[in-house]
Amino acid sequence: MSARPLVLLTNPMHPEPQARLAAHADVRLAPATDAQTLARAALDADIVIVRAPLPPEALAGARLRGAIRHGAGVDMIPVEEASRLGIAVANVPGVNAVSVAEYAVGQIIALTHRLRRIDATLRAEGWAAARALTDGTHEVAGRTIGIVGLGAIGREVARICHFGLGAKVLGARRSDAPMPDHVEPETLEDLFARSDVVVLACPLNESTRGLVGAGLFGRMKPGSYLVNVARGPVVDEAALIAALTDGPLAGAALDVFAEQPLPAASPLLAMPHVILSAHLAGLTDDAMRRMGEGAVDQALQLLRGELPRHLFNPEAEVAIRARLQELGPR
């Protein structure tokens, strides 16, 4: 066994928290993020910090004590298998909420003001053609923004839209947790029917996979918009493409997709009224530093034999404590 513990990174992290981690452990960057490479690279790791889908085989190492999501959503980690093995799963919730919310609000403005199409038209066709596109553009003030998922990201989007832009905000969430006073609770169906812009900010799980399909798109107003900063599989992508082609959607801003990277043959790439980005809404330098610090804090807790602050699989706590005790502090 190495004299120092080994922490595997599936992808690079911010250099400042990585340097802090390197004072306590050997830090290794996986040479690739395919399932076979990650499984092989994790065999002798004490901890894996996860920014790419982790296959169940990557949990087979005898020394592994934790898989820490560099971010909030743990759909990249096989949680059930980790729990069965007594391996802690942790995440860093909320720290990229401002970055993702700013992205979402920026896209709301870009869509309602047709900024992407105006920019492209000005460059290709000139001044007059670009100015003509302002017909039918809208202010966000006074419009209705519907938010699906009122976690840290959804609440921040709601705050900016209500207090910053003067929009009416509707919210739908699966839990019974209270909503902020400036968010009107609404059923999912009526939220889609009433909103000028719908923002998806919910987690991906079995209850949200395929949540948004032809039925909900069919309830939306003609000329409405969709912004997805949740996960691609929350949306039926074929139904989305149909809604963008035949209505009612006037446009969409998508940071996430059913298949990532987005295939070169995707019809979305040919749609000028769709703004696309590469799952990067939460990857500002500020958010990356905070996510890295949160991941390192919990890695050091696990190396000391402690439970991580944001343990995601507490139902396996007994097995996790037993495994940590067996492995001992590093």
Results as ranks from 00 to 15, higher is better:
residue 128 A to G: 14
residue 104 A to K: 05
residue 113 H to S: 14
residue 96 N to T: 06
residue 95 V to M: 05
residue 131 R to G: 10
residue 129 A to D: 12
residue 130 A to Q: 07
residue 122 L to K: 07
residue 112 T to S: 05
residue 106 G to Q: 03
residue 116 R to G: 05
residue 114 R to S: 04
residue 126 G to P: 11
residue 130 A to M: 07
residue 105 V to Q: 00
residue 97 A to P: 00
residue 112 T to C: 11
residue 129 A to C: 09
residue 116 R to P: 01
residue 98 V to W: 09
residue 99 S to K: 03
residue 98 V to M: 12
residue 115 L to Q: 04
residue 103 Y to R: 07
residue 112 T to M: 13
residue 108 I to L: 13
residue 128 A to N: 14
residue 122 L to T: 08
residue 124 A to S: 15
residue 124 A to L: 11
residue 92 V to W: 02
residue 115 L to I: 14
residue 103 Y to H: 11
residue 110 A to I: 05
residue 98 V to C: 07
residue 92 V to C: 03
residue 92 V to D: 00
residue 114 R to L: 05
residue 100 V to L: 09
residue 115 L to M: 14
residue 126 G to Y: 10
residue 109 I to W: 08
residue 123 R to L: 14
residue 130 A to E: 07
residue 131 R to E: 11
residue 129 A to E: 14
residue 124 A to N: 13
residue 113 H to M: 12
residue 93 P to G: 10
residue 94 G to I: 09
residue 128 A to D: 15
residue 122 L to W: 06
residue 124 A to Q: 15
residue 111 L to E: 00
residue 99 S to W: 05
residue 130 A to C: 07
residue 112 T to I: 11
residue 104 A to M: 12
residue 124 A to K: 15
residue 98 V to E: 15
residue 117 R to A: 13
residue 96 N to W: 01
residue 111 L to K: 01
residue 104 A to E: 01
residue 108 I to A: 01
residue 128 A to I: 11
residue 125 E to Q: 15
residue 121 T to V: 07
residue 97 A to L: 09
residue 103 Y to S: 02
residue 120 A to F: 08
